[in-house]
Write a protein that binds this DNA or RNA. Sequence first.
DNA 1: TGTACATCAGTGAACGCGCGTTCACTGATGTAC
DNA 2: TGTACATCAGTGAACGCGCGTTCACTGATGTAC
Lengths: 194, 194
Amino acid sequence: MKVTKEQAQQNKQALLDAAGALFKEHGIDGIGVADVCRQAGLTHGALYKHFADKQDLAAQAFTHAFRAGYDRVSTPKAGKARTLDTYLDAYLSKRVRDDLSKGCPLVSTACETGRQGEAVSRSFADAFVELRSGVEDVLPEAGPVGDKAALANLMVAALVGAMAISRGVVKADRALADEVLEQVHSALGMMQPR
Amino acid sequence: MKVTKEQAQQNKQALLDAAGALFKEHGIDGIGVADVCRQAGLTHGALYKHFADKQDLAAQAFTHAFRAGYDRVSTPKAGKARTLDTYLDAYLSKRVRDDLSKGCPLVSTACETGRQGEAVSRSFADAFVELRSGVEDVLPEAGPVGDKAALANLMVAALVGAMAISRGVVKADRALADEVLEQVHSALGMMQPR
DNA sequence: TGTACATCAGTGAACGCGCGTTCACTGATGTAC
DNA sequence: TGTACATCAGTGAACGCGCGTTCACTGATGTAC
């Protein structure tokens, strides 16, 4: 049956929320559209009234999840300046490591994005550029490794890689997983002025 | 029909080779056991004479693929010392970026390893520790970011993250993908003494 | 060396199951009069 | 404001297909005598 335009919009948001969490947790190829729709409180047929196909859903869900998380991190709290530590604490958190449905989709789907289509790659690239730009803004003019641009690329790569590695090893060696997050946090922290 | 012991061993190696390449290219969840067996020149039933299940195959294939690639990179060529650049050139290569079946399985399956079982996590952890140790060996005693251990963690995280990001964005923006590899190469290169 | 036979790697049909997508249908919404 | 009806978000059965795993069977290998 038809629903109000407002309800339809809410349902689309619910689909994006569900897809964001489930794709992060299980991977895009690791969860079915029926599960996403069920979590959103709809049946699977409804999906195709809002999205062209699963790839389209994945691309939009990626952007949606990045926006939600990134705005929370990058918006400075009242009276507090945004610093490099803001990013380090948000991206190298053990709590996020232990809950795959949480965290930045840049990290959760980094490796498999290379196997997805161009639409998902576009969402991924836009998010990366925005995060890299945000990190560059909080860097000092001259650091130990040359220009800010190179350092910002290095930092984002390290954030993504450290979390991926920590998640990869945690089931076999929790201490090693913690060590990776702590050491990368420490190494990156030394690149800003005290 | 039965085959010679030697042939059976060759077939197992062929299964590991095929699994290594196909799991890197499509992800563990993205390719079927029948495809792996077909690429190895066998039918799908034969797999279970060599491996307990798909997870077991994935774990052994990971170690097999890491060994093959890592030994090639870390064994110094006659008369040439192994340096940090050895690792940077091997891990931040555009040629590897553009062929998903190539390269280190640490990079290819980093994100999805968090979703696999403990056996795969064990293989992943062992490979990471070995690579990190190899990188630490070529670092100077005192660098710009504190102790060698922290720097080695940072470097491996950056190598893994940079390749994952470059592969993620390349379908949407090839110039951006190249830039990430080059800038991270440049930033990491400045951390060794000239 | 020759023969009889147990072993077991590999085959391929079959299992139940879930996948992404399509489509005829439903019925409340929202609009035209 | 009241009525008639076109719209369209959502439903759920159905599609063909591929998945991981099992298992009865095959027949060359390798061994015991």
